[in-house]
Each structure stands twice: as C-alpha cells, then as structure tokens.
C-alpha cells in the first residue's frame, strides 16, 4: 500500500444510476483501503462541460487519479473491486 495521498476525481454526466453506483463503489473501496488519505471530487459534466477537455473525458463514468502520479483513468461503474484496486495501484497486479 502506498503512503502518498490519493486525489481522485469522478466524472459523471447528471445523476444517473450508473454514476451513483460508481460513486458508492468508489467510496466503499476508498474507505476500506485508503481511509484518511484520499479526497474525491465529483464533477458533473452536464453542469460543466468545459471540464471534460482537461482530463480528456470521453467515457462516463470516469475516475481519474490525479495523485499520486502518473495520472490513471478507470472507466465504468467501478463494480469490479479487484480491477479498481489494480487500476489505482493500491494493490499490485497478480
């Protein structure tokens, strides 16, 4: 497990079941593995379409790990815990 703080952004488009589910899944994983060392910012592209460009968002929902570097992206509803953990480099592959 890494010691550095995790800065996460979750991009959604409106309050859809998929985005709610993604947020819930993310919250659960973070609480379990990163308690106290993470921040989640939820960005609604419907309200702020311009923000899509910065992180090159195409798919929704997209989770972007800004810190620690390098930037990582995970798309989908984050239902597969293993994949999310690997994607965020919280646990190593295999």
């Amino acid at each position: 497990m890494k010691k550095a703080a995790y800065r996460l952004k979750l991009y959604v488009a409106g309050t859809t079941p998929k985005s709610l589910e993604a947020f819930a899944n993310l919250k659960k994983i973070c609480e379990e593995y990163l308690k106290g060392q993470y921040s989640i910012e939820v960005i609604d592209l419907i309200k702020n379409p311009k923000l899509a460009k910065g992180d090159q968002i195409i798919a929704i929902p997209t989770l972007v790990r800004h810190l620690p570097e390098p930037i990582k992206k995970i798309i989908g509803d984050l239902s597969n815990k293993e994949k999310v953990l690997v994607g965020l480099n919280i646990i190593n592959k295999g």
Binding site: Y11, A13, K18, A22, L45, A52, I57, I58, A59, I60, P61, T62, P70, I71, K72, K73, I74, I75, G76, D77, L78, S79, N80, K83, V84, V86, G87
Partner: peptide, 12 residues
C-alpha cells in the same frame, strides 16, 4: 492509461 471496470457509456 485506461482501465475498464463495469458498464460505461460515451456520454463524455
């Protein structure tokens, strides 16, 4: 750079 987990769409 992209990991896929579960359902998504291209709403972005």
């Amino acid at each position: 750079e992209i990991e896929e987990t579960g359902e998504y769409d291209l709403e972005g």
